[in-house]
Amino acid sequence: MKTLVIGLGNPILGDDGVGWRVAEKIRQELDNPQSAICNLQSVEVDCVSLGGLSLMERLTGYERVILIDAISTGKKPLGSVTIFTLDSLPDLTAGHSASAHDTSLRTALKVGRSMNLPLPQDDQVLVVAIEAQSVYDFSQELSPAISAAVPLAVEATLELLRSNQEGE
């Protein structure tokens, strides 16, 4: 399956940059001859600060997508890693502004599909979420709890990629 791994977030906004750090490790794994996922031809990695329509446009042409991002639910311990599919997230946007300027990724994917763009189905958009809190202070450093979660999120993502490989 043609798969895209995306580190999502703002690399200069503290723990919001965690998605980028995890994705960069995945990229290193792909380039590492010792790694089990080395040279997976069907996997690409990117780091972006996008949402809504722009993110949808970036997902065009892939069958499966893994989004790695910080999440602030306030209900889980900091650094908790959760995996879920996009279609299991409530679409919070029905009727209201999705972000101040855009629409939700789910709505954007529906828009793209209605234009016949080749996009992954919602259940093929997987989210690796890292519970974070310090996302309002400018910094290029992760806080200790989130930094400690990076290997967990990397392992979770690699597991998804390995299952991806076996499924082929």
Partner: peptide, 15 residues
């Protein structure tokens, strides 16, 4: 109005 970091957050939505 712009909430600065609105677009890169997860789930990037505004309920």
């Amino acid at each position: 109005p712009c909430f600065g970091c609105a677009t890169h957050s997860l789930p990037g939505q505004m309920p």
